[in-house]
Structures are given as structure tokens and as C-alpha cells.
Design a protein around this nucleic acid. Structure first.
Length: 277
DNA sequence: ATATTCCCCTGGAAGC
DNA sequence: TGCTTCCAGGGGAATA
């Protein structure tokens, strides 16, 4: 569920709440997330240490402690965090509890358990852990532009929508923003990636940056259950132009064209067959 | 090697 | 009301 803008929103809130805080003790529900939780490793990596940095890479969050110790987090489809007083009641699907100083706790809650929380090594302060080496560039960073997209797409026969979902090509785009970016760029999601012209790649890269920036400014998109640490929902849902809008008039073409849904690589894609070519 | 399909899980909405 | 079916913002393993 959470894509780059949602993870960015969560990450900024975590940074504000956790920086310089000390992890006193760690507990788990004992239930595996995407993989079994390595409680001993987490205690070694985080236990007794102060949070030195919190940053995002693609859809991952990296929490850095002193001494090269790190914590790699991923929200999966349904993960969420909260930081609250120790006296409040636990909730269903609380799978990781980091007890902090000042009688607070930091909780990772994840009903579907597709999330991830693992100890990692940080070689140099600010560096990515080796586990993230396969990620493509940040779409809002300097390495991502139309030229890059053109180059990496040449040898790919997959539909461009699938290419955008490949985290090794570009990190952080998910199902919502892939559809939204293709709509903004006027490119059909079914187009073979390798057949895109250079100008189309430029338009698409620009559309990706725009939609992600707009969504971050709105605190992300809440379709169902995404919420930030303060409980607020992402306001970008009202700005969606095609995602989830099957049968509605196209915002660009008007009532003469209706938004359609199709399935690509097992995921829903939304697009206007009239203005996306 | 690349590209789909399937699977992991829970919960909410929609259909009957 | 209750049951069944479908669907979901992710990613990785197993298949073609």
C-alpha cells in the first residue's frame, strides 16, 4: 500500500519522533512478518542505542544507530507505526515493540505481515545497507531523468507500467503512482517499454517526479487504511485522476472517454484509452 | 535472462 | 443477518 510518498510521510514523522531517542528494550509478537523476526539480532543492533538518523530509500526506511548498526524497515501492504505512552493498551497485529526512554514505545503494527524489520550493517554513516544495493535510483534524485529511463528501457519488452513497478529500475513507484504518472504523461500502460521514444521517456520521467512531489506535499494517498503517525490520512486521494476510477469520465477528455481498468502482472492498471497512446 | 503467475496474509466491501 | 467471493497501496519465489 505505501509507495514513496506515503513512506516519505511516515519517515519524516519517525525522524521527528525518534531522533536521539534511546531504545531500551525490544519485544515481538513471535509471529513472522515477511520473514521471521530476528529478535536477537535486533536487540544487538538497536538495544540500548540512540537513534542517529532516519531516512528513506525507495519504499524502505533505514534507521541508523551509532557504530554501524542499522534497522531496515518496510511497510509492506498494511504496515504502520505509532509512538505512544507505555500505559496505552496494545492492539491486534502489534508485531514489534521498541520500548523507548521517557516511558514511550514505538510500535510496528502490520495485519497482513508483508512488512519487514531487520538488523543491517551501515558501512559509513549515511550509506545504504548492502540489502538495498539492487534498488534503482531515487525518482526525485539527480540520477533519474528521461535519458536514464530511455537507456534502461531499450532492452525491456515488458509493458511500461510493469517497468515502472520494477524497483531495480526506479525505486519507490507502486501501483497507484504508476497509473497516475502514465496518465499525466499521456502514455498507454500497455506500451512496450523498449518502444518508447526519447521524448516520451522525458515526459514520463517528468510526470513521475511531478506526481510524487504533489503527493508528498499532500502527505500521500489514503485509499483505505494508510495513516501517518499522527493518525492523519493522506490527502492526495482527492487528486487521483485515474486510479480506482473505472467508468468515470476522463479528466482530460471529458465524458466522451471513460477510465478503464485492466490487469497487468496481476495488478490493476487504470487509464484513459482515448488520450493515453 | 526476462516476463508472467502464484503465493504469502488479514480485513473490508460487495454480492447473494 | 450471514455466508461467499473478490479485492487491496508489496515483493519474492516459482514457473514458462
Amino acid at each position: 500500500m505505501p509507495e514513496l510518498p506515503e513512506v516519505e510521510t511516515v519517515c519524516a514523522a519517525l525522524r521527528a519522533l525518534l531522533l536521539e531517542r534511546r531504545v531500551i528494550r525490544i519485544e515481538t509478537s513471535g509471529v513472522p512478518l515477511r520473514r521471521p523476526v530476528q529478535l536477537a539480532g535486533l536487540r544487538e543492533s538497536c538495544g540500548g542505542r540512540r537513534v542517529a538518523a532516519v531516512r528513506r530509500r525507495g519504499k524502505y526506511i533505514v534507521v541508523e544507530f551509532a557504530g554501524g548498526c542499522g534497522l531496515l524497515l518496510h511497510l509492506g501492504m498494511s504496515g504502520s507505526f505509532r509512538v505512544e505512552g507505555e500505559d496505552l493498551p496494545a492492539r491486534s497485529h502489534d508485531h514489534l515493540i521498541f520500548h523507548l526512554d521517557r516511558r514511550q514505545r514505538w510500535v510496528f503494527n502490520d495485519p497482513r505481515r508483508f512488512g519487514l524489520a531487520e538488523p543491517v550493517h551501515i558501512e559509513v554513516p549515511g550509506a545504504d545497507p548492502a540489502e538495498l544495493a539492487g534498488l534503482g535510483p531515487e525518482p526525485l534524485g539527480p540520477a533519474f531523468d528521461g535519458g536514464y529511463l530511455f537507456d534502461v528501457s531499450r532492452v525491456r519488452n515488458t509493458p511500461v507500467k510493469n517497468l515502472l513497478l520494477d524497483q531495480g529500475v526506479v525505486a519507490g513507484i507502486g501501483n497507484i503512482y504508476a497509473s497516475e504518472a502514465l496518465f499525466r504523461a499521456g502514455i498507454s500502460p500497455r506500451r512496450r517499454a523498449g518502444r518508447l521514444r526519447r521524448a516520451e521517456c522525458t515526459a514520463l520521467a517528468q510526470a513521475i517526479r511531478e506526481v510524487l512531489r504533489d503527493a508528498i506535499a499532500c502527505g500521500g494517498t489514503t485509499i483505505r487504511d494508510f495513516h501517518a503517525l499522527d493518525g492523519r490520512e493522506g490527502e492526495f486521494a482527492v487528486c487521483l485522476r485515474v486510479y480506482g476510477k473505472t467508468g468515470e469520465p476522463c479528466p482530460r477528455c471529458g465524458p466522451t472517454a471513460r477510465i478503464r481498468r485492466l490487469t497487468q502482472a496481476g495488478r490493476s492498471t487504470y487509464y484513459c484509452p482515448h488520450c493515453q497512446r
